[in-house]
């Protein structure tokens, strides 16, 4: 088990390195100089070739690419001082660069935006697990009944709609057509500054959208897994032994059924933590996803780089955790 985790960690590090290199090279060899956006910005669009050269030099773009990549990696571990034109910017470890727009260390802004994204992700995931799994179990137990069929087909319908349209409609109807006073001012309001009530009110609709949509999918997963599990031989054995239905369903069936659900959930949740771009864009939540969208539109390369790297790391960790949890839940799986 330990050896397996180490092995997975190594391969994870390898993937992260590869991703970071790919992004680095992408900007380095992009159609325009990677210093162009900052030069344009700082000079109010009067970036001449001479000025661009100054920026390229101080940012190190006239050095060999491997040398600069080395500095970038080193900065992540020990921090560095970045020079942009004649100004020095202190960038402590882990240094992910300095935002071209705000001139603040990217890491600080990333950290300051994490609560928003995490609030969305945790709240949404909580809702869809809370409703998805029990409904799925219930449907599996009543498999084949009218209620089951109606539920399954209506949920199939909802989950076939692209998520962003579902979220958009939720937003339009619940803030514009039928505004709910307390909840229609969506956005992220930190608990520390605005109190838990405002925080809850601002995020509620985003959670509802994410929750309902996710719930339909998790109901289907859970139902499918439950149906599968309940048709296993050991369940028949348990029934034959005369165990109470409750025990059969929840102790034997659900435990087996949860395994695939946990797997999917782990990856899903990782994706959410890495940035919920559509949810944040639609509900105006200033989290990591919206930030990366704005960074792309504002050509803020260090931020684009950092958000891509961050999400890769989160997804890799999520994958690893899922595999570990999988082996714990399902004794048949041996990690090696």
């Amino acid at each position: 088990m330990f050896a397996y985790v180490v092995k997975r960690l190594i391969s994870g590090v390898l993937v992260v390195t590869l991703v970071s290199m790919a992004i680095f090279l992408l900007f380095w060899y992009g159609p325009s100089s990677p210093a162009q956006p900052i030069c344009d910005r700082e000079t109010s669009n009067r970036c001449t070739q001479t000025k661009l050269a100054v920026y390229e030099k101080t940012l190190g773009y006239d050095n060999p690419v491997y040398e600069e990549y080395g500095k970038y990696v080193k900065g992540i571990f020990v921090g560095r001082t970045l020079t942009i034109a004649s100004n020095d910017y202190e960038c402590g470890a882990p240094c992910l660069g300095v935002s071209y727009r705000t001139k603040q260390p990217v890491k600080e802004e990333l950290v300051s935006r994490m609560p928003a994204t995490f609030s969305v992700a945790i709240g949404g995931a909580f809702l869809y697990l809370l409703f998805g799994v029990p409904i799925g179990v219930a449907a599996a137990r009543r498999r084949g009944t009218v209620a089951d069929k109606a539920l399954v087909s209506s949920f199939l319908f909802i989950s076939s709609i692209p998520y962003y349209l579902f979220a958009l409609l939720t937003w339009l109807y619940l803030t514009i057509t039928f505004p709910i006073p307390f909840f229609s001012d969506t956005g992220y309001f930190s608990i520390a500054q605005n109190g838990p009530l405002k925080w809850f009110g601002g995020l509620f609709l985003a959670w509802v959208a994410l929750g309902i949509f996710g719930c339909t999918q998790y109901t289907r997963f859970t139902r499918g897994a439950m149906v599968e599990a309940l048709s296993e031989d050991y369940i028949r054995t348990a029934k034959a032994k005369g165990l109470p239905t409750r025990t059969i369903v929840y102790k034997h069936g659900l435990r087996a059924a949860l395994v695939p659900v946990v797997t999917i959930f782990g990856i899903d949740f990782g994706t959410l933590l890495a940035g919920t771009i559509f949810t944040e864009r639609i509900f105006d939540i200033q989290g990591i996803g919206y930030w990366s969208l704005q960074a792309v539109q504002g050509r803020d390369l260090p931020v684009v780089q950092a958000t891509a790297l961050f999400s890769a790391v989160v997804l890799i960790i999520a994958n690893l955790l899922v595999d570990v949890v999988y082996s714990v839940l399902d004794p048949r799986v041996r990690l090696s």
Binding site: V15, G275, I277, G289, S292, A308, S311, L315
Partner: peptide, 9 residues
């Protein structure tokens, strides 16, 4: 591992 949206962005 690379989130599609970010890559597209």
């Amino acid at each position: 591992t690379i989130p599609f949206l970010l890559a597209a962005l």
